[in-house]
Design a protein around this nucleic acid. Structure first.
Lengths: 366, 366
DNA sequence: CTGTTAGCGCCTTCAA
DNA sequence: TTGAAGGCGCTAACAG
């Protein structure tokens, strides 16, 4: 029961070998689980290890084998439930295969993403999964650098244009198109889009809008394109006043939707591309003294148990967060195994969960 | 532009030294940022490193220095928004100080927690932060083992009885007491508790209930105690029928609340200790054709933007998730720095956010 | 089957 | 100030 503060230098394989009375290599072989060892010595070694409380030093092992059994994960924000779900998927499937995960948050900053990649390179991870904030062609040096060093990289959630990497994503554009289309089929023509690009001024033309979008996150741009697709398919003219611009915050969404609801020809439906965009919109609807779906129809991205218990319950697009992570990890792992996989581009299914936040527009506005 | 698949053996410090025409040690000194090096040679080395794209091998460095600049984090589920928030806090503050984190999910299983700790020990992390599922005295061997090996451990979110470790928690008991008390002050005496212990049968007595609770998660037990405290303070008799037992799932919560709402003397308020307990309860209230707060008052744990946009908005207890993480990381870091800190027990503040889901009980039930 | 011997890449005395 | 040499703990040929 002595509580001595002995310098806790953990037992090494040599000590185990010594107390077992065998050579280093023999101990290493049985403890490392490779090579042949006679049952006798094996027993002795195991006993000694047990007695000493031996645990292999993974660092030393990695030094000589060159593999760390560790995956790097780079996301914008591990605190965001979406990424948390993805990371959980990555973590679960890699753990199953004996890989651990070190995850870094970039706060959506490219420079932090680059720093994160360097950390992972330095730590010699066996591969990395990244939801990259890179959009410009010049933004991808850190990704190609990793690959040149022999570290496989797979993209998750976000593709990076003109970069031929394995990617696991959803079809944001189609998911958005489908959602907006369902609004159109319900009779809406004045459909708000929240949130849009983070420009300062309001893009006057469709071309400007698209240009602005392409300077933003890939997912956001895709969702905007899907919105426009649906409008086009239905021959509904695009109205710049119906797309939110500016900071992507809940309160900004509230302001913008409030504005859209006050337009001469007001919005009768709102499509939200993110959770906080939806809660912000909801606040605007309430503040305007309107009710959904009677006055305004609503569809949002990223289903949650909350959305289902709203009154009325919200129609939402469900993303397979966990599966995105699982698939990304599985892809990366097979890359690490040296499987000669051609570049893959997994597009996972989303699901439009119809509940009760969509109805026909009010008669007065039709 | 050759896409050669050269074996990407990264440049070592020796190569840098060679191409700079200096000794290994000199290169190591300038690249490692220690010891004296003349400006001249320093320049040469830096240039060579730059040219070769040199990056220090953190494994090798850790091998010889004995530190990894890596923190281990063990939580039940990184996909859970609460833990995701905590991890984000840990990650942010440790990153600031040059530490990375490797996080492991245990799925609330003690054996996975033990395995996780072993992984971290093997990887020689400098310290670990754990939200432990340990409850029995016999469950803490892996925690003490880490400490004996010289790896500092700090608990977050959950204390572990009879184990003298630094801990960063909230006062679950007081938070619960306060919430339930506010219900009582609104006039309620029939207050449901969701969720309770995962026993099979329904504890008949208060003693049995407490015993069952103490076999469960620390946080859950504390919240239950707080509930009982509030009842005691007000002289309201405890009724076993008003506490949920069984699996902690949303649907189970719905079933149990449905039951409580159908009691001869039905519940007129429900206190929920977790997000899914709240959404499950909400479903039960709706299904019973009741409205809140008119028919049933509601208070829940873990505020979110959804809770604020419910109609009516929900009164919730807010936990400082990010700050829990920050504080835990800061505490661990100072332990690692060898600061002679006496055992600390940080209890962070929660906040009862009063919104509109609490009112007086309906007259008929008073 | 077992033990000896080199490294892995870096840090760290210790002379020079 | 600089360079040579040894060691961190483990794996991996290599003889024996």
């Amino acid at each position: 029961m002595a509580e001595r503060e002995r310098t806790p230098s953990p037992p090494t394989i040599s000590e185990v070998a010594a107390t077992a009375g065998v050579g280093r290599a023999t101990a290493a072989r049985t403890l490392g689980g490779y090579g042949y060892v006679s049952p006798e010595l094996r027993e002795r070694v195991l006993a000694a290890a047990e007695q000493l409380g031996y645990r292999a030093n993974a660092l030393a092992r990695s030094m000589s084998t060159g593999v760390t059994h560790t995956l790097g994960v780079i996301v914008a924000d591990i605190g965001n439930p979406f990424f948390a779900g993805v990371v959980r998927g990555i973590s679960d499937t890699s753990r199953e295969r004996g890989f651990d995960t070190i995850v870094l948050s970039t706060h959506e900053s490219l420079s932090e993403e680059i720093a994160a990649m360097n950390v992972l390179i330095d730590k010699r991870v066996d591969g990395v999964i990244v939801a990259s904030a890179a959009v410009e062609r010049a933004d991808v040096a850190h990704l190609t650098a990793a690959i040149e060093r022999g570290i496989p990289v797979v993209l998750v959630d976000r593709e990076v244009s003109h970069l031929d990497l394995d990617a696991v994503v959803i079809d944001n554009r189609e998911a958005a198109r489908e959602a907006v289309d369902s609004l159109i089929r319900a009779g809406h023509t004045r459909i708000g889009f929240v949130w849009g690009p983070t420009t300062e001024g309001r893009p006057a033309t469709r071309r400007e809008l698209l240009a602005a979008a392409s300077r933003n996150l890939w997912t956001d741009a895709e969702r905007l394109r899907g919105y426009l697709d649906a409008l086009d398919d239905a021959g509904i003219p695009f109205d710049p006043d119906l797309v939110m611009v500016g900071e992507k915050t809940e309160s900004r969404a509230t302001d913008e939707v409030t504005r859209m609801l006050a337009l001469p020809e007001r919005a009768t439906a709102v499509f939200c591309t993110e959770t906080d965009a939806m809660t912000g919109s909801l606040r605007a609807v309430r503040a305007a003294g309107l009710a959904y779906p009677a006055d305004v129809s609503l569809i949002g991205f990223d289903d949650s148990s909350w959305a289902a218990v709203m009154d009325p319950p919200l129609t939402m697009i469900e993303q397979p967060m966990h599966e995105l992570g699982e698939t990304a990890a599985a892809t990366l792992l097979s890359l690490i195994d040296g499987k000669a996989t051609p570049r893959s581009r997994h597009t996972l299914e989303t699901k439009l969960i119809s509940r009760a936040s969509v109805s026909a527009p009010p008669v007065a506005d039709r």
